[in-house]
Design a binder for these strands. Structure first.
Length: 228
DNA sequence: AATCCTCACAACCGCTTTCAA
DNA sequence: CTTGAAAGCGGTTGTGAGGAT
């Protein structure tokens, strides 16, 4: 399904431009992109309300932020998700569920929106197919990866997304992860596992081992300690 | 050739979290 | 400590492209 991103994808896909409540909605034009890009390069990210006002763009702050983060930012790479990236997304999704922003942080140049779209359009089916083939003989029915993760990670008040991120941080490499581990080491003293667990390894075995995070015990994810 | 269906993707919406006053 | 604004996040929608019938 090739979408030509080299011309102006905004004009070829997405919602039609419309003007409502004094604000433009829908696809961004090349001119709007240019104005926004120039402003952010000059003044930096953040203060999106100011961006919208100062540039004269009839766009909401949210819309400006989204456009910059997902498309205009210089280090964004679009399309052609490699196999190793795909594999990493699948593994991270098993661990984290639908926490796209956390997953995206492990894939340099990829945005949460892109990963989310890719998951829903492509990977979800792949994972479902492979897991149904793989687990046909298992007694335990497969769950949706996100539901499974939430279930096995005991997503309650004691385990915030941030904490999960820190727990995963040192262990995922998958080829891409090694450089990222060095890039953002967990802060010392930061709480990296829930208080209920006495140690990192206990949390590790609880989430990855005993609970069977991926539902297929014969195809387990590597544990934190294995990957470390 | 026309119509329908599915896919891929951009962007919006609403909720939650963070942070400054 | 409270509150309101801004930022961040995930879910969902709407659209065009292309394949199938």
């Amino acid at each position: 399904m090739g979408v030509n991103h080299s011309s102006n994808p905004a004009l070829e896909m997405g919602r039609p431009p419309c003007f409502e409540d004094g604000l433009n909605k829908g696809v961004w034009t090349a001119h709007e992109d240019e104005v926004l890009g120039n402003y952010v390069k000059l003044h930096g990210e953040g203060k999106w309300v100011n961006v919208a006002k100062a540039t004269g763009l009839k766009r909401s702050a949210k819309s400006c932020r989204l456009r910059w983060l997902n498309y205009l930012k210089p280090d964004i790479k679009r399309g052609n998700i490699a196999l190793d990236e795909e594999d990493l997304i699948i593994r991270l999704h098993r661990l984290l569920g639908n926490r796209w922003s956390l997953i995206a942080k492990r894939l340099p140049g990829r945005t949460d929106n892109e990963i989310k779209n890719y998951w829903h359009s492509t990977l979800k089916k792949k994972v479902q197919e492979s897991s149904s083939n793989h687990c046909k003989s298992k007694k335990k029915p497969m769950m949706e990866p996100s539901a499974e993760s939430a279930e096995s990670l005991k997503m309650d008040s004691c385990l915030s997304p941030t904490k999960i991120f820190h727990a995963v941080e040192p262990s995922i490499d998958g080829g891409l992860g090694k450089e990222m581990v060095a890039e953002q080491p967990p802060e010392s003293g930061d709480e990296i596992f829930p208080k209920n667990f006495a140690s990192f390894s206990e949390f590790d075995s609880m989430t990855v081992g005993e609970c069977g995070i991926n539902g297929c015990q014969d195809d387990p994810l590597p544990s934190f300690s294995d990957l470390g």
